[in-house]
Structures are given as structure tokens and as C-alpha cells.
Amino acid sequence: MSDPEKLSETERMKAFEERLARAKQAAPTENHMKKDYSQAQHAWRMVTELVAGLLIGFVIGYGLDYAFGTMPIFLVIFIFLGFAAGVRTVIGSAQELQKKLLANDAGKHGDD
């Protein structure tokens, strides 16, 4: 392959296909996307649990304040309770994920 302008169309296509085949062989076949997606999924789950706790606390506190006419008291109390419940749920999810990862890691390495 001396000069690309002098090659015919079929010769250029063959050369391109050969380069493409070599590039496909050199490319890694392991797909990291599934692993990264799984980690992002766990992170979003934890964020959602925390926000859900805050929102539920807000709704309950606002509802009680509206019913009793004591506007900020129950709202503040239940927002803090919702935050605490959300944090507790996130900690539980993190511990569950850690146990799962440790079990998978132990299964991969056997009795090392």
C-alpha cells in the first residue's frame, strides 16, 4: 500500500476491513457498563430513600399543623423525624450492599 490515491475502491475497502478486524481483535471484550450501572442504581436508590423520608415527614407535619392550626411546630418536628428515618434506611441499604459485595468477593476468591 504505497499511495492511497492510486489504490482502487475494492483494494481500499479490503484494507479498511483488515484494519477494522485488527482493531476489533485488540479491543477488550469485558463490558464495564453493567457494573457501573449497578453502582449508580444503588446510589439513586439511597438518594430516593432519603428524599422520600423527608417528603413523608413534610406531608405528615404539614397535615397535622393544618388540622390543629399550629403551623410550624409539627412541620419542623416531622421533617427532622423524616430525615432521621431516611438516614436510617440509607444506612440499612448501605449495609445490605456491603454484605452483598463481601459475599460476592469471597465467592470469587474462594479460600485465599
Rank of each mutant, 00 (worst) to 15 (best):
I73M: 12
I79T: 08
M46S: 15
K100R: 11
Y62N: 02
F58I: 10
G69C: 07
Y62G: 03
L20P: 08
F68T: 04
L64T: 06
H32Q: 01
G107I: 05
E96T: 01
M46H: 12
Q98E: 01
G86V: 13
G63S: 10
V87Y: 11
A103S: 07
D105G: 08
S38D: 04
M1T: 03
T70F: 11
Y66P: 01
G63C: 07
A21S: 14
K6D: 05
G63W: 14
M46L: 09
G92D: 03
N31Q: 05
A85C: 04
G86M: 09
S2A: 03
E11F: 09
F83N: 10
A84C: 10
P4N: 00
A27D: 10
G61T: 12
A106K: 14
N104K: 13
L64F: 11
A52H: 07
D65W: 02
L54P: 07
Q25D: 10
S2C: 01
F83M: 09
F83R: 05
K35G: 00
E11N: 06
R19I: 06
F68S: 03
E5I: 04
A67W: 10
R45W: 13
R45V: 11
Y37K: 11
G63Y: 13
K34S: 07
A52T: 13
Y62P: 02
R12D: 00
L55C: 11
G53H: 07
L7I: 01
A85T: 02
F58N: 07
W44K: 15
M33D: 00
L55W: 08
E30T: 14
T70C: 03
A23K: 14
R45L: 15
M1Q: 05
T10A: 07
L7F: 03
G110V: 15
D3W: 04
L54S: 00
L101F: 02
V87Q: 03
W44D: 14
Q39S: 10
V87W: 12
I79G: 05
R45A: 15
L102T: 06
L7Q: 05
V76H: 12
L97Y: 05
I73N: 12
L54W: 09
P28H: 09
H42K: 15
E96R: 00
G69P: 11
M46I: 08
L81D: 09
G107V: 04
R19T: 12
F16C: 01
L7C: 00
G107D: 11
F68H: 04
G69E: 00
G82Y: 08
Q98R: 01
L54Q: 01
K34C: 04
A23G: 13
